[in-house]
Design a protein around this nucleic acid. Structure first.
Lengths: 193, 193, 193, 193
DNA sequence: AATGAATGAGATTTCATTCAT
DNA sequence: TATGAATGAAATCTCATTCAT
């Protein structure tokens, strides 16, 4: 293993250890000493790779670009099967990193600023879902008794709830499958009868 | 105002200040000094009322006995309207204390042990919902294409998701109303056609 | 019981409680709250009777005026029986208050200043003992192979050692008896053969 | 000076400073800040070497293994000269660390538990001295008018008294010499005439 | 005279970060 | 580049003392 590879490996070991500990104990309650011990390096080494402890958290929170959902509205319907396929794929991908997901939720709620930022992220998604449901209503796919805005909102909630549920280990299904079944019921509920 | 009342008032001022700050900044990042300053008392006074900083968090986390949901299974169907009425009432009650709800979620995710405890709480609720959905299936209220277990799981998710959604301020509706509409779509999705 | 008596009783209860606790835990580790609780009064009451916590300690340390030893040298010999009678009486008197004696030793060693003061006290006693032993040597009561100064010094030591021994509960004898037997051996050792 | 040596030196500087200050002011009245300032290190450094302030006290109280006294009874008499040689050696050795000795006495008296432990230590020594004096009585070295138990008790007292005397600076002799002369008088007092 | 809530200085302890080796 | 001893700001918590009731 050459020098470059060794460096990368060290960095990853630190990242991984940090993630585990943050998930277990929370960010504030985890000390740099714990991280470096878990990673099997000296305390000083931590600061060779990251400027601050906060820095590591930042590196971990790069979450889930949901570009594809944003692009959904530009595609033709029916949307239900497309959407279901999408969340299944997305869920399966995210399931690979349970700790990261937990961290991301914790981070979201950690303080007012983070919450505000996350909220904006979800509002953006909602804004991009509204035209999807509107189009679905126009093409007769979805009922018109519920406003598209409400549908988008509920969809977001289902995503959040399933995430929380899965992260906490309440359901035993995989994250993708759990999302799938939840959204199936959801679509059943809003389909035009 | 007599002495006893003054004492209670002081305690409440501290509790309130603590709740606000915990909600804003998170538990770990909030210092006792900040709390007492916000409450307008001396640092020492905090420790006249609470043994430790952790103690105050405990006092805040007494949340929401959901006995009524537990008792639902012992009542006759149809369950959908009963359940909807229940979550509306529950939601409206809980909406009175936004900060407390946020704290409770943060607390749930703060560390592995808390998460485990919360998980058990939700599993208990799920276990009590399963017979409700089973009964509903037997009486022809709900579809039989989805297992009762899954329904209970999704119901829990919807609750969690709506809570998260509302706490983060994504939806503008009241908590009770938001729960109501979400569960309406859910029941629409599982009704026997 | 009239007012005056009640006041005195309260003061004594505080003093007694303080003494017990100081003896058990040491002065610094005992809190005013502990004292007042043990005395069955409110914290504020303590400061109605004593200016500071230190003040109480002072009140307790008034120990054992050893005037009589000081006066011994002005009396005629033989000194051994006189001395033995004296230490027996003294010891029996002091034995009445075990806690006080412990406190007094602790106080002696608590810091450099106290130690210096106590040292001066003991030196004073030694200075007053030296002429006694000198006289005893002149009258042929004591050996002349050991300087009177040394005798005085050893006598002081025996007193200190017996006190420590008794306070710690190593010997089961009464304090007076223990002093008596120790000094008997001592005089046996310095008698003119 | 290499790293390892520097570390040791730092630890010793802290220990030494702590010992001096404890001796001067007592344990409770000495702050960690004072110790570190006296040792010329930062406050945090203290806690790199000792878990708590109490920890340091413990490190200082490792006193005086008196194994040799314990073994005395297995040797043949006459015991007086053996014993005298022993206490002289012991005293000279202990004299090297005045502060430590003071600390040890303070520690003994600091609270009930310590006192109990110390008492047991001294009782052990006494128990090991009793057979020595008994043997001495059988071989005609010591008088039989005083029980061996009493002799052992008085010997312990002489040790304690001399220690206190020397620690307080009452006598000007060295500790070993002071012990020697005191025990000479003692043996003179119990020798078979 | 008695109370005990309030005070705040000051104690112990933690821990992210620096830097000489 | 890796190390870990040293740092010191800042946290939690204690407790003697005050004072309005």
């Amino acid at each position: 293993m050459n020098r470059e590879e060794k460096k990368l490996e060290t960095k990853n070991r630190i990242l991984e250890a940090a993630m585990c500990l943050f998930a277990e104990q929370g960010f504030e309650s985890t000390t740099v000493a714990q991280i470096t011990e878990a990673a099997g390096v000296a305390k000083g080494t931590f600061f060779n790779y990251f400027k601050t402890k906060e820095d590591v958290r930042g590196k971990l929170n790069k979450l889930v670009a949901i570009d594809e959902i944003v692009n959904l509205k530009d595609k033709p319907g029916p949307y239900a099967p497309r959407f279901l396929a999408l969340v299944k794929t997305l869920g399966d991908a995210m399931a690979e990193n349970h700790g990261m997901l937990l961290l991301s939720i914790q981070g979201m709620l950690a303080n007012n600023q983070n919450m505000e930022e996350s909220k904006e992220g979800f509002c953006l998604i909602m804004d991009n879902l509204i035209p999807v449901f509107e189009k679905g209503q126009q093409t007769g796919e979805f009922t018109t008794t519920i406003p598209a805005t409400t549908m988008a909102c509920i969809a977001t909630q289902i995503y959040l709830g399933t995430m929380l549920n899965w992260v906490m280990g309440i359901s035993k299904e995989g994250f993708g499958d759990q999302l799938l079944i939840s959204f199936q019921v959801f679509f059943e509920g809003i389909l035009k009868k």
